[in-house]
């Protein structure tokens, strides 16, 4: 797989506190260009807090962070222009049509009218959504929605796309088609930063970090993690690391 050696995300000693509560406790990691990086952790481990900071939506308490070459304190608008974001909870507008959603997001990401029309056509053809062009999002199947949501999140060729639990609830075949799209995006040089509760999906990532109680408890390739924790799958690795944590603490 083509991967640049350049780090597209650099995080050094990230600390984020809410009052006395430490949500991110000295996180340090790098993500390489074109890498599929899995960001795992139990509910309440601090994943969302860290993602919001990386997306330029919230400021760290302390630490040095660079995202797509921009500083998270002083260049947050630049960061937002160079990333895409998709989550299962917030993706497309149900009461707009397929085309209207594409046009809306493409315009928000600053594409010109001409580019929007061109890319919308290419995208709908690729997803075989041409006949659904004028259908409301609420009337198309969940699997189509997810594929469209991912395509829309990268319509502006961002350097990084953040996928926050993108695949919940779809059938296993659709889920795999979705991951093929993720692979394709990574091949095209887009760095993929993904969170998921499906531990089998974690195995699709190039590298994984597992957060426990605000800290990164492990970071490596899926294979190396399985060997290190003598586990037969990622679920076992995750349980071994996260078992100690009681959610009452979070």
């Amino acid at each position: 797989m083509k991967k640049g050696s350049t780090d597209i995300i650099i995080v050094k000693d990230l600390v984020k506190k809410f009052g006395n509560f430490v949500a991110n406790d000295h996180l340090s990691f790098e993500v390489k260009r074109g890498e599929i990086f899995g960001f795992l952790g139990a509910n309440g481990a601090g994943k969302t807090t860290a993602i919001r900071i990386l997306c330029g939506l919230s400021l760290p308490t302390s630490g040095d962070l660079s995202v797509a070459g921009y500083d998270v304190y002083s260049q947050r608008e630049k960061i937002k222009q160079n990333i895409g974001y998709m989550s299962q909870k917030f993706s497309l507008y149900d009461d707009l049509t397929v085309f209207e959603n594409i046009r809306f997001y493409a315009a928000i990401y600053g594409l010109s009218k001409k580019e929007i029309v061109q890319r919308a056509d290419v995208l709908m053809k690729k997803l075989q959504l041409e006949e659904a062009r004028n259908k409301l999002i609420r009337d198309i199947p969940l699997g189509w929605k997810q594929k469209l949501a991912l395509s829309v999140a990268i319509i502006h060729d961002p350097k990084i796309v953040f996928l926050d639990e993108p695949t919940g609830g779809v059938d296993p075949i659709t889920r795999r088609q979705f991951w093929e799209m993720i692979y394709e995006a990574a091949r095209n040089g887009i760095t993929v930063f993904v969170t998921t509760h499906y531990m089998d999906e974690a195995e699709y990532c190039d590298r994984l970090s597992i957060m426990v109680e605000g800290r990164i408890a492990a970071l490596n390739t899926p294979l190396a993690l399985r060997e290190e924790y003598q586990a037969k799958n990622m679920n076992e690795v995750f349980l071994k690391l996260a078992r100690a944590q009681t959610e009452e603490v979070a």
Binding site: G41, A42, N43, E165, G168, H197, L239, R243, Q245, E247
Partner: peptide, 9 residues
């Protein structure tokens, strides 16, 4: 659904 692996178990 949407619950982490530890809580699921």
């Amino acid at each position: 659904t949407g619950v982490d692996a530890v809580s699921r178990q």
